[in-house]
Simulated scan of single mutants.
Amino acid sequence: MARTSSSTFDFPRLRRQAGILAGASLLLALLLISYTFGVKNHFFARLFSAFFVFFWLLAVTFLGVVPFVNWAARSWFGKEWVSDSFTKTSSRRSSASTSPSSARTPTRTASRSSQKRHP
């Protein structure tokens, strides 16, 4: 079965994102392993395993979970729901920030020095 040219999947973009994640994973792994163990005993084996773990976690999160949540919110609730919830929260925050703040009143009416001290 031949693949059509009208595919909506963008392979160059996916490769670029995977490259960015691989670079960030290598940097995080290098920093973690060199800080924790130094460059002595089994440095490259530890670096490879740490790189693999970081890359796997970042790739699953940013290439799988985040796009799925965006797709689910868009298709299950609709575009109107996403735009309405954003405008409601932004309008609530803006009106709350402009309201005058209430003055704080002391909660304790008597000072501690006037209380009776028990032995």
Rank of each mutant, 00 (worst) to 15 (best):
V69G: 04
R15C: 09
S34I: 07
V39K: 10
R93V: 07
A59I: 00
S25W: 01
V60M: 13
I20F: 08
R108T: 10
G23W: 03
R46K: 13
H42A: 06
L32K: 03
A73G: 13
A96G: 05
F11V: 05
S101C: 06
L57K: 15
G78A: 02
L30Y: 14
V65P: 00
L58G: 03
R112C: 07
S101F: 12
W56E: 04
F44D: 05
S6L: 14
S94M: 08
A2C: 04
T89G: 06
L28F: 04
T89H: 14
S91V: 12
S94Y: 12
W71F: 15
P119M: 03
A29S: 07
T4E: 10
R93T: 05
A96E: 05
R3C: 01
F43H: 01
F51K: 10
F9E: 06
F9I: 14
T105V: 13
T105D: 10
V60Y: 12
N41D: 15
T87Y: 14
K116W: 04
T107M: 12
F68I: 03
S97N: 09
S5V: 04
M1V: 11
A24F: 11
F11Q: 01
A45G: 15
S114N: 02
S111G: 12
Q17T: 10
S91A: 15
T61Y: 15
S85F: 09
V53T: 10
L28H: 00
R46N: 11
S7C: 05
R3T: 07
K79L: 12
K88T: 10
S34R: 13
A96D: 04
L26M: 13
V65E: 05
H42M: 02
H42N: 11
S91G: 04
P106V: 08
T87W: 11
R108S: 09
L27Q: 01
A24D: 02
M1G: 14
K116P: 03
R112L: 14
S111F: 08
F44V: 07
S102A: 11
P106R: 15
R46I: 01
R104K: 11
Q17P: 02
F68K: 03
L58Y: 06
A29N: 00
L30C: 09
R16W: 08
A73D: 06
